[in-house]
Amino acid sequence: MTDRYPAPPEGFADFVTARSAALLRSAWLLTGDAGRAEDLLQTVLAGAWRRWSTVVAAGHPEAYLRRALFTTYVSWWRRRWRAEFPAATPPEDTGPSDLARESADRDAVRRALARLSRQQRAIVVLRYVEDPPWNGPPRCWAVRRTR
């Protein structure tokens, strides 16, 4: 941190340390790409930084961030984001190695998700990954929309 930047607001750094890995995972499911997932998360975190006291006052920073992640993703129409990846060739037979199979699985899921529309992908991730019906009452969606 240099003098050019103000210190992060109280609690922000701790929140990022604790929760950014989980948020990044959601961002990856949405974007299907590590670089763009980081981009998306950075954007959302930057917004939260600027409004951190409001975010905290709303009662559940993670819920705020997750909502921002999805809405930003759905509405982000910058040119480079339009570069969706169409179906590539299926992965080659990766043999018996678990690691290889895992990576092929990841790839298959990523490419299958990439064929959905942006809105459909967000809906699938929200309904079945973030808040799966078998997981009982949701923990982090209990906050009203604050915008």
Binding site: R66, R67, F70, T71, V74, Q119, A122, I123, L126, R127, D131, P138, W141, R145
Partner: peptide
């Protein structure tokens, strides 16, 4: 909730 989050 999904609808609420996505605003649809």
């Amino acid at each position: 909730r999904t609808a609420q989050v996505l605003g649809c």
